[in-house]
Amino acid sequence: MKRLSVFNVVSLTFGFAFLYVPMLILILFSFNESKLVTVWAGFSTKWYGELMQNEAMLQAAWVTVKVAVFSSTIATVLGTMAAYVLVRSGRFLGRTLFSGMIYAPLVMPEVITGLSLLLLFIGIGLDRGVLTIVLAHTTFSMCYVSVVVSSRLATFDRSLEEAALDLGCSAAEAFRLVTLPIIAPAVVSGWLLAFTLSLDDLVIASFTTGPAATTLPIKIFSAVRLGVSPEINALSTLMITIVTVGVIAASLVSKRALVKQRQEEQEAVRTS
């Protein structure tokens, strides 16, 4: 039985206040009547209205979502393959290089990744635009996906696959019918991670984009560089809301599944 000491209560309170108060202030001032984001002048939703009228912003949002959907989907496929290779394929020529290339992008400064990809695209004469951003995002987010999936694969009971093979599955069937359903939650969270990474990315997108494709972070960055504006607050509020709802919903779903499983287990014990 643990007592929460005064010190712990204070540090938790201050810690979480530090994490959340800035965002709350941001949200608060998105409903401000005045253009100044520091002085409260009454409640208004006019900045949301203005945001909806901002063609360029909407266009950028659309590009961003498109890029995120494509890149995270390809990254999930490639990342799952890579995870399977890392955990299951044993030794092969260049395995060390392979795992190095999976882990390196996780710690590589974005400016370097962005610069190097841009130089590649110019070198091979690829026109910069949505395609190049998708390629770039896929490359770094597939590494995140493969880390998430491989940690699930590593704890996965190998005898389940062996049982499938024993019961007559081919290797591909065993993967499709047994492995994939079991690692599915990790694959889904890998996709979500890749999706948010792509939505958030400013630096790599700035390097690899061309004049035709502007993503939302690039748009926001060029706007906020000049100063604060309530319209950006409104946009931020929308993004924070979507993410918060998404994360809470996902955690509730997984918690519910866990509770249900536990109840069923208890039920099974009770009725046996």
């Binding site: 800035p22 965002m23 972070p217 100063g227 604060v228 809470i248």
Partner: peptide, 20 residues
């Protein structure tokens, strides 16, 4: 979850929040 939540929200937005 409260610690992880900010990690899912845009980095850019979290930096921007401090500007104001």
């Amino acid at each position: 979850m409260l610690v992880i939540l900010p990690f899912w929200t845009s980095f850019l937005i979290r930096v921007y929040a401090w500007k104001g």
